[in-house]
Amino acid sequence: MERDDRSIADERSLTERSAPVREGVGSRSSDWERVERTSAFEELARKKRAFIVPVVILFTVFFLGWPALGGFTTLLDGQAIGAMTWAYVYGFAQLATTLVLLHLYTRQAARWDGLARRAREEAAEGGTGA
């Protein structure tokens, strides 16, 4: 099912760009539901949620914990590497995790692109994927 539809996908994005973006209501909800109910779209939504929700919670807690620990405790005042304090090490560690998460996300997202493409094909074929 994983065909290389790059050229067709490019064609599509071109036609979409020239098409006017609709304001407000217009399209029938059932047509959108048809895409939403394809097995590929359901898988896409599920996989996105499974990756994004825990990752966002994780880096938010990691980030907010830093000024909390730094301001309310003296835990981060100690010197870690030479005179560089743990507060700095914690900060630089967040730069590193940002790059790691960027890498993991772009790798996942490239797979999700394939699922989005499949959802469009399944919807066009009229199947619900079931």
Binding site: S27, S29, D31, E33, V35, E36, F41, K48, A124
Partner: peptide, 17 residues
């Protein structure tokens, strides 16, 4: 449904799609 599908797939017009 429309918003959910649109932002996940980039489809802007379902009829044309």
């Amino acid at each position: 449904n429309e918003i959910h599908v649109r932002y996940n797939t980039g489809i802007s017009s379902i009829e044309e799609e």
